[in-house]
Simulated scan of single mutants.
Amino acid sequence: MRALLRLIACLAAAGLALQLFFIGRIALMVAIDPQSTTFQRSEAWRIASAGRDNTTRGDARAWQQEWVPYERIADTLKRAVIASEDADFISHGGVEWEAIERARQRNAKAEEIAARRAAQARARGKEPAAPKIRGGSTITQQLAKNLLLSGERTLLRKGQELMLATTLEFLLDKRRILEIYLNNVEWGEGVFGAEAAAQHYFNKPAARLSANEAARLAVMLPSPKFFERRPGSPYVSGRAATIMARMPAAELP
Protein backbone atom coordinates (compact mmCIF):
# COMPACT_ATOMS: atom_id res chain seq x y z
CA MET A 1 0.00 0.00 0.00
CA ARG A 2 2.82 2.41 0.85
CA ALA A 3 4.50 1.69 -2.46
CA LEU A 4 1.22 2.40 -4.26
CA LEU A 5 0.78 5.68 -2.38
CA ARG A 6 4.34 6.70 -3.23
CA LEU A 7 3.67 5.90 -6.89
CA ILE A 8 0.49 7.98 -6.86
CA ALA A 9 2.32 10.84 -5.15
CA CYS A 10 5.13 10.70 -7.73
CA LEU A 11 2.64 10.71 -10.60
CA ALA A 12 0.77 13.64 -9.06
CA ALA A 13 4.03 15.56 -8.58
CA ALA A 14 5.08 14.83 -12.17
CA GLY A 15 1.68 15.96 -13.46
CA LEU A 16 1.89 19.19 -11.45
CA ALA A 17 5.44 19.83 -12.68
CA LEU A 18 4.30 19.36 -16.26
CA GLN A 19 1.44 21.83 -15.83
CA LEU A 20 3.79 24.39 -14.27
CA PHE A 21 6.18 23.89 -17.19
CA PHE A 22 3.37 24.54 -19.68
CA ILE A 23 2.21 27.62 -17.78
CA GLY A 24 5.77 28.96 -17.66
CA ARG A 25 6.20 28.43 -21.42
CA ILE A 26 2.98 30.29 -22.13
CA ALA A 27 3.87 33.13 -19.74
CA LEU A 28 7.14 33.67 -21.60
CA MET A 29 5.18 34.10 -24.84
CA VAL A 30 3.81 37.39 -23.53
CA ALA A 31 7.11 38.95 -24.60
CA ILE A 32 9.14 36.24 -26.38
CA ASP A 33 8.22 34.84 -29.80
CA PRO A 34 8.24 31.01 -29.74
CA GLN A 35 10.99 29.73 -32.04
CA SER A 36 9.26 26.42 -32.76
CA THR A 37 6.29 24.29 -31.77
CA THR A 38 5.95 20.65 -30.79
CA PHE A 39 4.20 19.95 -34.09
CA GLN A 40 6.94 21.66 -36.11
CA ARG A 41 9.63 19.65 -34.36
CA SER A 42 7.77 16.42 -35.04
CA GLU A 43 7.43 17.41 -38.71
CA ALA A 44 11.14 18.24 -38.93
CA TRP A 45 11.93 14.81 -37.53
CA ARG A 46 9.52 13.13 -39.94
CA ILE A 47 11.08 14.88 -42.94
CA ALA A 48 14.59 14.04 -41.76
CA SER A 49 13.62 10.42 -41.09
CA ALA A 50 12.24 10.15 -44.60
CA GLY A 51 15.72 10.89 -45.92
CA ARG A 52 14.85 14.28 -47.35
CA ASP A 53 17.27 17.14 -47.55
CA ASN A 54 16.78 19.68 -44.77
CA THR A 55 17.23 22.69 -46.98
CA THR A 56 15.99 21.87 -50.44
CA ARG A 57 12.99 20.19 -52.00
CA GLY A 58 13.43 20.17 -55.76
CA ASP A 59 13.77 23.84 -56.65
CA ALA A 60 12.08 25.03 -53.44
CA ARG A 61 13.11 25.12 -49.82
CA ALA A 62 12.04 22.10 -47.78
CA TRP A 63 11.51 24.18 -44.64
CA GLN A 64 10.01 27.64 -44.91
CA GLN A 65 9.23 29.86 -41.95
CA GLU A 66 9.83 33.49 -41.10
CA TRP A 67 8.31 35.24 -38.11
CA VAL A 68 6.67 38.56 -38.92
CA PRO A 69 4.96 40.86 -36.41
CA TYR A 70 1.18 41.24 -36.30
CA GLU A 71 1.30 44.51 -38.25
CA ARG A 72 3.07 42.82 -41.20
CA ILE A 73 0.31 40.25 -41.69
CA ALA A 74 -2.47 41.51 -43.95
CA ASP A 75 -5.83 42.09 -42.29
CA THR A 76 -7.31 40.11 -45.17
CA LEU A 77 -5.57 36.96 -43.92
CA LYS A 78 -6.56 37.59 -40.31
CA ARG A 79 -10.20 38.04 -41.31
CA ALA A 80 -10.12 35.02 -43.64
CA VAL A 81 -8.71 32.71 -40.97
CA ILE A 82 -11.18 33.90 -38.34
CA ALA A 83 -14.10 33.61 -40.78
CA SER A 84 -13.04 30.09 -41.75
CA GLU A 85 -11.75 28.62 -38.49
CA ASP A 86 -13.33 30.46 -35.57
CA ALA A 87 -16.00 33.10 -36.22
CA ASP A 88 -16.42 33.82 -32.48
CA PHE A 89 -12.68 34.15 -31.80
CA ILE A 90 -13.03 37.62 -30.28
CA SER A 91 -15.79 36.71 -27.84
CA HIS A 92 -15.09 33.21 -26.53
CA GLY A 93 -12.80 32.27 -23.66
CA GLY A 94 -10.70 29.79 -25.61
CA VAL A 95 -13.16 26.90 -25.76
CA GLU A 96 -16.59 26.69 -27.42
CA TRP A 97 -18.40 23.87 -25.69
CA GLU A 98 -21.38 23.98 -28.05
CA ALA A 99 -19.08 23.58 -31.06
CA ILE A 100 -17.38 20.61 -29.39
CA GLU A 101 -20.75 18.96 -28.76
CA ARG A 102 -21.87 19.58 -32.35
CA ALA A 103 -18.63 18.06 -33.61
CA ARG A 104 -19.13 15.04 -31.33
CA GLN A 105 -22.61 14.47 -32.72
CA ARG A 106 -21.42 14.84 -36.33
CA ASN A 107 -18.56 12.43 -35.73
CA ALA A 108 -20.82 9.85 -34.09
CA LYS A 109 -23.13 9.99 -37.11
CA ALA A 110 -20.16 9.82 -39.51
CA GLU A 111 -18.82 6.75 -37.73
CA GLU A 112 -22.22 5.01 -38.01
CA ILE A 113 -22.37 5.72 -41.74
CA ALA A 114 -18.74 4.63 -42.15
CA ALA A 115 -19.46 1.36 -40.34
CA ARG A 116 -22.32 0.54 -42.74
CA ARG A 117 -20.21 1.45 -45.77
CA ALA A 118 -17.29 -0.58 -44.43
CA ALA A 119 -19.50 -3.66 -44.17
CA GLN A 120 -20.67 -3.12 -47.73
CA ALA A 121 -17.08 -2.60 -48.94
CA ARG A 122 -15.87 -5.79 -47.25
CA ALA A 123 -18.77 -7.70 -48.78
CA ARG A 124 -17.48 -6.58 -52.20
CA GLY A 125 -13.89 -7.43 -51.25
CA LYS A 126 -12.75 -3.81 -51.07
CA GLU A 127 -10.82 -1.90 -48.42
CA PRO A 128 -13.20 0.28 -46.33
CA ALA A 129 -12.51 4.02 -46.15
CA ALA A 130 -11.85 5.66 -42.80
CA PRO A 131 -14.55 8.01 -41.48
CA LYS A 132 -13.89 11.75 -41.73
CA ILE A 133 -13.51 13.14 -38.23
CA ARG A 134 -14.31 16.81 -37.71
CA GLY A 135 -13.11 18.91 -34.81
CA GLY A 136 -14.80 21.72 -32.92
CA SER A 137 -11.54 23.40 -31.96
CA THR A 138 -11.15 27.15 -31.68
CA ILE A 139 -8.04 28.97 -32.92
CA THR A 140 -6.83 29.04 -29.31
CA GLN A 141 -7.25 25.26 -28.98
CA GLN A 142 -5.42 24.67 -32.25
CA LEU A 143 -2.58 26.87 -31.03
CA ALA A 144 -2.42 25.03 -27.69
CA LYS A 145 -2.24 21.67 -29.46
CA ASN A 146 0.40 22.71 -31.99
CA LEU A 147 2.55 24.59 -29.50
CA LEU A 148 2.86 22.07 -26.73
CA LEU A 149 1.10 18.76 -27.37
CA SER A 150 1.39 15.63 -29.49
CA GLY A 151 -1.00 14.82 -32.32
CA GLU A 152 -2.49 11.73 -30.67
CA ARG A 153 -6.28 11.56 -30.24
CA THR A 154 -7.02 10.62 -26.64
CA LEU A 155 -9.32 11.99 -23.96
CA LEU A 156 -6.29 12.83 -21.80
CA ARG A 157 -4.67 14.87 -24.55
CA LYS A 158 -7.96 16.61 -25.32
CA GLY A 159 -8.36 17.52 -21.67
CA GLN A 160 -4.84 18.92 -21.61
CA GLU A 161 -5.63 20.93 -24.75
CA LEU A 162 -8.68 22.50 -23.11
CA MET A 163 -6.66 23.44 -20.03
CA LEU A 164 -3.88 24.99 -22.09
CA ALA A 165 -6.38 26.92 -24.25
CA THR A 166 -7.86 28.42 -21.09
CA THR A 167 -4.35 29.30 -19.87
CA LEU A 168 -3.49 30.96 -23.20
CA GLU A 169 -6.61 33.11 -22.99
CA PHE A 170 -5.82 34.06 -19.37
CA LEU A 171 -2.17 35.01 -19.93
CA LEU A 172 -2.22 36.37 -23.51
CA ASP A 173 -4.54 38.80 -25.24
CA LYS A 174 -6.42 37.88 -28.43
CA ARG A 175 -4.06 39.84 -30.65
CA ARG A 176 -1.01 37.95 -29.34
CA ILE A 177 -2.78 34.59 -29.66
CA LEU A 178 -3.65 35.31 -33.29
CA GLU A 179 -0.12 36.58 -34.01
CA ILE A 180 1.50 33.41 -32.65
CA TYR A 181 -1.04 31.20 -34.43
CA LEU A 182 -0.55 32.84 -37.84
CA ASN A 183 3.23 32.64 -37.53
CA ASN A 184 3.29 28.94 -36.70
CA VAL A 185 0.34 27.23 -38.37
CA GLU A 186 1.13 24.71 -41.12
CA TRP A 187 0.37 25.67 -44.75
CA GLY A 188 1.96 22.75 -46.59
CA GLU A 189 4.87 20.33 -46.47
CA GLY A 190 7.46 22.22 -44.40
CA VAL A 191 5.63 25.54 -44.90
CA PHE A 192 4.85 27.25 -41.61
CA GLY A 193 3.45 30.68 -40.90
CA ALA A 194 1.79 33.42 -42.91
CA GLU A 195 4.96 34.87 -44.42
CA ALA A 196 6.23 31.52 -45.70
CA ALA A 197 2.79 30.64 -47.08
CA ALA A 198 2.43 33.97 -48.91
CA GLN A 199 5.87 33.62 -50.46
CA HIS A 200 5.41 29.91 -51.27
CA TYR A 201 2.03 30.21 -53.01
CA PHE A 202 1.89 33.82 -54.26
CA ASN A 203 5.52 35.09 -54.30
CA LYS A 204 4.66 38.08 -52.15
CA PRO A 205 4.91 39.06 -48.47
CA ALA A 206 2.06 38.32 -46.07
CA ALA A 207 1.42 42.05 -45.74
CA ARG A 208 0.28 42.25 -49.39
CA LEU A 209 -2.15 39.34 -49.64
CA SER A 210 -5.39 40.11 -51.47
CA ALA A 211 -8.76 39.01 -50.12
CA ASN A 212 -8.95 36.11 -52.58
CA GLU A 213 -5.39 34.95 -51.83
CA ALA A 214 -6.04 35.13 -48.10
CA ALA A 215 -9.28 33.16 -48.46
CA ARG A 216 -7.50 30.46 -50.46
CA LEU A 217 -4.89 30.11 -47.73
CA ALA A 218 -7.65 29.88 -45.12
CA VAL A 219 -9.29 27.03 -47.06
CA MET A 220 -6.09 25.00 -46.71
CA LEU A 221 -5.83 25.05 -42.92
CA PRO A 222 -7.74 21.87 -42.05
CA SER A 223 -5.66 19.76 -44.51
CA PRO A 224 -2.71 21.84 -45.76
CA LYS A 225 -0.69 18.99 -47.30
CA PHE A 226 -3.78 17.76 -49.18
CA PHE A 227 -4.67 21.18 -50.60
CA GLU A 228 -1.04 22.01 -51.40
CA ARG A 229 -1.32 19.42 -54.17
CA ARG A 230 -4.72 20.77 -55.31
CA PRO A 231 -4.47 24.58 -55.15
CA GLY A 232 -6.76 25.13 -58.15
CA SER A 233 -9.45 22.60 -57.30
CA PRO A 234 -13.13 23.59 -57.63
CA TYR A 235 -13.58 22.99 -53.90
CA VAL A 236 -10.85 25.52 -53.03
CA SER A 237 -12.40 28.14 -55.33
CA GLY A 238 -15.91 27.58 -54.02
CA ARG A 239 -14.91 27.52 -50.36
CA ALA A 240 -12.72 30.62 -50.84
CA ALA A 241 -15.73 32.49 -52.24
CA THR A 242 -17.75 31.54 -49.16
CA ILE A 243 -14.98 32.73 -46.84
CA MET A 244 -14.65 36.03 -48.73
CA ALA A 245 -18.37 36.64 -48.23
CA ARG A 246 -17.93 36.12 -44.46
CA MET A 247 -14.75 38.18 -44.08
CA PRO A 248 -16.37 41.62 -43.63
CA ALA A 249 -18.15 40.32 -40.50
CA ALA A 250 -14.93 38.88 -38.98
CA GLU A 251 -13.89 41.08 -36.06
CA LEU A 252 -10.16 41.59 -35.52
CA PRO A 253 -8.43 41.94 -32.14
Rank of each mutant, 00 (worst) to 15 (best):
P253D: 03
S150K: 05
A87S: 15
A12L: 15
G151K: 09
I32G: 09
R157M: 00
G136K: 05
V30M: 12
K158T: 01
L168F: 02
N203M: 12
A17H: 12
E152S: 04
M1A: 15
P131F: 02
T56K: 10
A60S: 14
L16S: 15
Q40P: 08
V81L: 03
A206G: 03
G188P: 01
A103R: 11
N54A: 12
G125W: 05
A60C: 11
E189D: 13
E96H: 09
P248A: 01
A3Q: 13
R57F: 15
E169H: 12
I180E: 00
I177C: 00
P128D: 01
R246A: 14
A62W: 05
E112Y: 07
S84W: 06
L7D: 08
S150G: 06
L20Y: 13
R52S: 08
G24Q: 10
R57D: 11
L172C: 01
I139R: 03
A144I: 06
I113N: 12
A110L: 02
Q35A: 13
K145I: 05
T154H: 04
G135D: 03
A118L: 00
A83Q: 04
L28Y: 13
I82A: 09
Q142L: 01
R25C: 12
Q105L: 14
Q120G: 12
A118D: 00
E251M: 11
A87R: 15
T167Q: 03
V68A: 08
A103G: 13
L221Y: 05
A215I: 06
A50W: 08
L16V: 14
E251N: 13
E251L: 08
E189G: 10
I100R: 05
P131T: 02
L182C: 01
R239P: 00
E127K: 08
A48F: 09
P205V: 04
R124L: 10
A74C: 08
L168P: 00
A9C: 07
R6C: 07
D59P: 11
Y70D: 00
R176F: 01
F22C: 10
R79I: 08
S91P: 14
